[in-house]
Design a binder for these strands. Structure first.
Lengths: 243, 243
DNA sequence: ATTAATCGGGTTGTCAGACAGCCTGCGGGC
DNA sequence: GCCCGCAGGCTGTCTGACAACCCGATTAAT
């Protein structure tokens, strides 16, 4: 077997992980296959065995490989993975990003419904404060768009907190922060168009209102309306092109 | 700082990861804090530095800690995590499991809507075959419940495949296989009640029908109806108690 | 006295070698 | 033909070492 040689980048183990996972993705390594021994990999990559071990330990951590003492390391079945992780390249492609957005939206929508049943007065106050921040941001010609963008993220997080589902919150925070990393510039340009920002705020205000009323069905509907629209608005932008 | 001592369990590095993450969860380690040096951790845990390094490399892999050469390793901010992972303990608690189920359902519901727009004749055939397997399973008094359970999982996976969102598929497969691990026995008992199984099959048949019609709104509605009901049926079981 | 250069200790990242415990596969004895 | 034992290879762990790096303190220069 042959792996992409590595070029002293950020971290040796990380390079090896990348090399192995890409070999896996390319189908060169298939579930059930045995990896070369650590020694063999070490010499092939030109590194010490400790480095290879560190790389393999990460793959084990994700359930991508399983190792047996005295035998070797094996590629696990796909359904045995124990972590959900998105490779940084996914965020570079427009199509992938929109898919991730849909994934996130699905969770956010359900969480909004839960929030409508678990809300307290303090929760509502918090969300209304975020809405106010959005409205204030419109007037701020300098950093208004950035403030709006941040406020939108905070609203999502606030809703997830209200829903009292820490797994959903963790998931949303993780996926959202990574999306935000790549999307900030485009999204900021988007909200710079004041009429779009006003529409978005109005949508979110209705969502908060539904949560306030304790109406999960309406919360779900309003959440879907806003977050799907937001994704659509992003998708429609010509400058949000494939990279 | 004091960490839980470890007792030669499954894997030394894994124990250390568990010890560190539990310290993090308990609030003893907070974002921005510096970890003890690898040497210090090694002596404290009574292991070699390589073992500690392997543990820390896993935490780095998840974005939970970041290390700087010549300085040390630091707990990262929560929003810097790059992996979504559920600790095995979560699946032991009834409440946690239901939350995870809601998380999964949110994704499945959105994915069903996408599937309704992307379906092909072959996809429909596949899903109808799975439905047939469910109906056949009712007659099988020996392994019928197990067959039904597996078929339900396959239907979810099939829908995710149709929707052409590999991230959602990965997510669902991961969370579902872990839920299934803990839930199989209860779910199997559930579907043993034939009238419940018949209801569930009917619900899923309507979902498939909506996908076949290419009606995303209906698909969403039917999906929510079935999967929320399924979660409710599980929650209602008295023997699905806290462990 | 203030600033600049230097030095030393501590830390991570990597390397090399070693050994225990385990497993597989082969060959020899029955 | 079947079973036992052994050798070799593998993973898991340990030990010691060194380079590169960072920080703080001490020292030197202005």
């Amino acid at each position: 077997m042959k792996f992409k040689s590595l070029e002293r980048g950020p971290s040796l183990p990380q390079e090896i992980v990348a090399s192995l996972t890409s070999a896996l993705f390319a189908g060169e390594l298939r579930p059930g296959d045995r990896l070369p021994s650590e020694q063999a990999l070490a010499t092939e990559f030109g590194v010490a065995r400790t480095v290879v071990r560190e790389a393999i330990s990460q793959l084990k951590y994700d359930g991508i490989v399983q190792s047996r003492v005295g035998v070797g390391a094996f590629i696990a079945q796909p359904q045995e993975r124990t972590a959900f992780r998105i490779s940084p390249e996914c965020f570079k492609k427009r199509k992938e990003l929109l898919k991730l957005l849909r994934l996130r939206n699905g969770v956010v929508i359900e969480v909004a419904a839960d929030a409508a049943q678990a809300r307290s007065n303090r929760d509502i106050a918090r969300m209304e404060a975020i809405l106010k921040e959005m409205r204030d941001a419109i007037g701020d010609s300098d950093h208004g768009a950035e403030r709006h963008f941040e406020a939108e993220r905070q609203l999502i997080h606030a809703i997830a907190k209200v829903a009292d589902n820490e797994h959903a919150l963790n998931f949303i925070v993780m996926i959202d922060s990574q999306i935000a990393e790549k999307l900030r510039s485009v999204a900021v340009k988007n909200t710079k168009a004041t009429e779009l920002a006003a529409v978005a705020i109005e949508e979110q205000a209705r969502l908060v209102e539904a949560i306030k009323r304790g109406d999960p069905v309406a919360a779900r509907e309003k959440a879907r309306k806003h977050y799907d629209n937001a994704a659509q608005r992003l998708a429609d932008r010509a400058d949000f092109a494939d990279v």
